[in-house]
Design a protein around this nucleic acid. Structure first.
Lengths: 259, 259
DNA sequence: TAGATTGTTAATCGATTAACAATC
DNA sequence: TAGATTGTTAATCGATTAACAATC
């Protein structure tokens, strides 16, 4: 029961990197690429829980077949997003907010504002690393392109996979990753590799300059402080549901059915 | 911008169902299946954040090739799990805890305790609904079996898929789901269907008695209060990373490189 | 104006963690 | 005993939400 430790690294606890980074960034409002400040709201002070919901609001506003015109009230949008309407209004207020009292929010403006805040004004190139079972599915997942991402590179180390073409992209070896990052301007990588390989692959990916990682491997990975890691642990999700099933059944068995 | 509403249903906000249910369950400690109370700790008061971490602790303790014998200190396990050691000790104390001061936790006892708390003492049968791109991958995902779950049924509605055999299981039609739930004793379903179908499929699944759902469809689903829904939104995960990338680059551009 | 809805305040709640007494 | 480590307390922090003044 030991784990290698390295002073340059911090365990990738959810959002730990964000907090540290957020605390380090201070000063006046930003001007990015010369864009007007009105359209580029100050992005520093947004809570982590709010950021996650912004993605939901954007999805709800753009998913529907309904034309994205007209206005929406906080009650309507909150209901559709499954959150409290006060939470929604507070979330949007972090964007500098542009609702109109008595009327609601202009949908087109809101979509633009949300997209810009989430950094989705152009499609972000993403590298997918590991083309096993799950990786192959992610390579073909249609839900990325419509929401701001382009899978720009496929990477593996298995000689049986490297060189094959998956979904129109040639699978390249991890050894080529430094070149791939430069070519495709990769900043985000999706890790779908075996748990045992996760830390090593992660190290190599970070060494190439990638600073955001979505990790599907059921393993804790350590990364330097400037790197963000988000983790999706599918079995853990089921275990959490299992816990609640267990609790429901336990309460049932002792109090309501038997005994 | 409207959403259908139903008095029997509540929006499936994360853990909303849990809180309501937890408040409803009161009374003395439980006795389940006649097992001793010492081995079946009171499971009611465990915070949601703790439950999620219990799954991580269990994975860290059982994943390694290291023999699961001996003891582990809170510092060691916390480091391996990427959490603060005080958090870990507090989490374990909710299980009635059995650490030994000056020594640590007996690994075998802890694994047993965690498994039992999460309801994983026997493999839970899970139904996988939707065998598109992602569903096929989940059907073959090796990470479920080793962590307490068995994919016991595959369901779809596409005539081209129904009747085919995937990973040794015959794909059955959603119309057969009531029978499948009874046969396989399904309590947990994984939804990997298109967003547009999510609510309807969810309704039918809940009507068959399933009370826990892991939803991969990028859609908010409404369920009755006794049903737990957890959501995995892959594109949203990337959007959250994108937000932080955007912020990092913005700060870099204005303060450190240009200007 | 009257009705509607935002943006914000303040109270509450839940989660995190440093510190340390208890105790092996 | 001395050293080590747990279990718990209490302070802090972040997130949620009811309520309502502001204002369209």
């Amino acid at each position: 029961m030991t784990a290698s430790r390295d002073d340059r690294r911090a365990p990738a606890v959810a959002a730990a990197g964000h907090r540290a980074a957020a605390a380090a960034v201070t000063g006046p409002s930003l001007s990015v690429d010369g864009r007007s400040l009105a359209a580029s709201p100050d992005v520093r002070a947004i809570p982590e829980a709010t950021v996650a919901r912004l993605a939901t609001y954007l999805r709800v506003l753009t998913n529907g077949d309904e034309t994205p015109i007209g206005t929406v009230s906080s009650d309507e949008l909150a209901l559709a997003a499954g959150v409290n309407s006060a939470t929604l209004r507070k979330d949007l207020s972090f964007l500098g907010s542009n609702g109109i009292r008595g009327v609601g929010y202009d949908v087109a403006t809101l979509v633009e504002r949300l997209s810009r805040t989430l950094g989705l004004t152009e499609h972000r190139p993403v590298a997918l690393i590991g083309l096993g079972n799950l990786g192959q599915a992610l390579a073909g997942y249609g839900g990325f392109a419509s929401r701001g991402f382009r899978i720009a590179a496929l990477i593996d180390v298995d000689p049986n996979r490297v060189g094959t073409v998956v979904r129109g992209l040639r699978v390249r070896h991890l050894d080529e990753f430094p070149a791939v990052v430069a070519e495709c301007r990769i900043a985000i990588a999706v890790l779908a590799v075996p748990a045992a390989a996760a830390q090593e692959v992660c190290d190599r990916v970070v060494a190439c300059g990638v600073s955001s990682i979505l990790n599907f491997a059921p393993a804790v990975v350590s990364v330097p402080g400037h790197v963000d890691v988000r983790k999706v642990d599918l079995a853990a999700e089921l275990q959490i549901l299992s816990f609640h099933e267990h609790r429901k059944n336990g309460a049932l068995a002792s109090g309501m059915v038997r005994a």
